[in-house]
Design a protein around this nucleic acid. Structure first.
Lengths: 241, 241
DNA sequence: CCCACGTTACGGTCGCGGCCGAAGAGTCCG
DNA sequence: CGGACTCTTCGGCCGCGACCGTAACGTGGG
């Protein structure tokens, strides 16, 4: 007879996992890494405003705990989130921690304002699209009957065909669901994540429907992308700017 | 222009939330409360093996942080998880913390073995069914075309009708999704959660398809429930024992 | 009315863990 | 081969927070 993992083990596992994120510096690391890219240890240290030695120790703990994956290249140590499941976990926690409580605060400088505006307009969230762009696409897919959100969150058969027609057929892979809702921080509504979300984002960048602004996680829609999204999904052009 | 919540705020919110669960005693509280019932402060203290004063302070912090809801009744203070979203969060974290890492350990005593067996067989998970029972029902619904798991996780129209026919029509309510997958600790596969999962569990207890064993979260299927589940969903009777 | 029990408030102890700086190991470049 | 750079290791400092015991508080029962 299969036995459950003992309750002590679950308890300490939960506490240990939470402890990893309970430190401001490590939390900042994880949120930064939510952009899906790999950062070097030094970049993370500067980003969080701590000494390199401190950052190094934190990274060790996060890797040890299975949240991060590290890879050495020359004199750099590249670090990224371990997998999509971890990204999902952090998103969920952040979404629960952030919202409602206290209204969004006004950016202090013009520079900050335009950066925040760009992020609110469109950005990547780990490996899929978020912000107004992500929501607009998700809503359009729902209205066209490609996605079903009323009874859960799943692609329809038409949705599967749509992806195939796009040249990005979806293959079920391991544990990761084909479609998942990911709560959008700025829009407070779910956008498309999972394998389909990743495929769509990948395709959008590949086909130059949108492009990264500088090296940030913010993205903007190209004129070509605007045409494609309007034509393929009926996304109102206004929602993309 | 709407601005994002500042990154500092999100960071400290995330760290603060994680810190609540980063303590073994508080983690134990939350896991105990996952049974969906309300516990008194004293019960939690004894359960975790700490002094009442310690438990009280922990409860304060958890309530303050929005994870728990407390309610005074006479000289008792009843405490439960704040809402389904919090329950979901804790489940997700526990599921990520527990599994794979280290195989399940053997129960030491006969008593522990039979308790673990009962929990593995069937139990409640917050407000829905879990364990082999929960999985069997979820799988049966999927095979009957009431639930779609291949492209995400959502009820089908047939599924909606099935619930209506059961006398438990599902009404969309607030933010909570109608159907959601909840990763089962023992079975490592998703079982039905969300509004539908809660409705099904409620109905199952109401119609005495199953009943709680003592005052634990473990449930067992009644002969009547066995008939009903086999007839309505084609659940193999063997999966219910 | 008083006692028992569950709960809360306070003060004090103790250990864990985050932080830095300085020195060392490894890598790339001129 | 030496200098610049990145990252890691080590030692030591400091503060936060988990814990308990004690004492007060409130409720419900006898």
């Amino acid at each position: 007879m299969p036995s459950m993992p003992s309750s002590e083990r679950v308890t300490s596992g939960l506490a240990a996992l939470a402890a990893l994120l309970a430190d401001e510096t490590r939390a900042r690391f994880c949120l930064a890494l939510l952009d899906g890219r790999a950062w070097t240890a030094g970049e993370l240290a500067r980003h969080a405003g701590v000494a390199p030695s401190t950052a190094s120790a934190h990274i060790d703990r996060l890797v040890e705990g299975g949240l991060l994956a590290a890879e050495r290249q020359g004199r750099h140590r590249y670090v990224r989130l371990a997998d999509a499941q971890v990204a999902h976990l952090i998103e969920d926690l952040a979404a629960h921690a952030a919202p409602g409580h206290g209204r969004p605060d006004r950016p202090r400088t013009l520079r900050a304002a335009s950066a925040a505006g760009a992020l609110a307009r469109g950005r990547t969230c780990y490996d899929h699209l978020a912000g107004r762009l992500g929501i607009a696409v998700t809503e359009a897919m729902t209205e066209r009957g490609l996605l079903r959100q009323d009874t859960g969150f799943a692609l329809t058969d038409a949705g599967l065909r749509w992806f195939a027609g796009l040249g990005a057929p979806l293959a079920p892979s391991g544990r990761r669901p084909l479609a998942r809702g990911c709560l959008d921080w700025t829009e407070r509504r779910p956008h498309l994540a999972g394998i389909a979300g990743a495929a769509l984002c990948h395709h959008a960048l590949e086909a130059e429907w949108c492009e990264r602004i500088g090296s940030t996680r913010a993205v903007q829609v190209t004129p070509e992308g605007e045409r494609a999204l309007t034509e393929l999904l009926g996304v109102p052009a206004a929602a993309l700017r």
